[in-house]
């Protein structure tokens, strides 16, 4: 499957990926409304890690052998049959945070506004390329199929 690959040596820590991710996962998909006027407040589905000159954007790895799928007690976490992506059906999620306990990348976060649910990267379902990748000015994250 196509995955997002991280090339940390190219990351400048500009956080454009984070902004575009948040907007993409907002109701309005407009930056000002997304940041200033939506409830529940949308949150980015990726994490930018930064330390000194080193930085990288990290999102769900959509693992082949995904521990979150095994740990989910509601069936909310599932693998999309067509794309192979690991997705969370927020309607089924009860916020037990088992997925957070077992994700070794620490890329599932709690969405605490409104219904408490696990929040994670969905590879921008429906988009040709996830918006974080599309808007990265230095190709520090790429979306490709490796064999």
């Amino acid at each position: 499957m196509k995955r997002i690959y991280i090339r940390e040596e190219y990351c400048m820590g500009c956080r454009l990926c984070e902004i575009h991710c948040l907007v993409q996962h907002s109701k309005s998909r407009e930056i000002i409304k997304a940041y200033k006027g939506e409830y529940p407040k949308p949150q980015p589905r990726l994490i930018v890690e930064e330390k000194g000159y080193l930085s990288f954007a990290l999102q769900c790895r959509h693992c082949e052998d995904a521990p979150c799928l095994e740990a989910c007690i509601t069936g909310a976490m599932y693998r999309d049959r067509e794309t192979g992506a690991v997705l969370c059906d927020e309607d089924r999620c009860v916020g037990c945070w088992m997925c957070i306990m077992v994700c070794p990348f620490g890329v599932i976060s709690r969405n605490l506004e409104g219904k408490k649910v696990a929040s994670k990267c969905d590879l921008c379902m429906g988009e040709e390329t996830p918006v974080c990748v599309r808007n990265c000015p230095n190709e520090a994250i790429v979306y490709e199929e490796k064999t």
């Binding site: 995955r3 690959y5 991280i6 940390e8 990288f56 990290l58 790895r61 693992c63 082949e64 052998d65 521990p67 077992v102 070794p104 990348f105 490796k146």
Partner: peptide
């Protein structure tokens, strides 16, 4: 970070 699949 670059691993595709992980075994736990």
């Amino acid at each position: 970070v670059t691993g595709e699949a992980i075994e736990i």
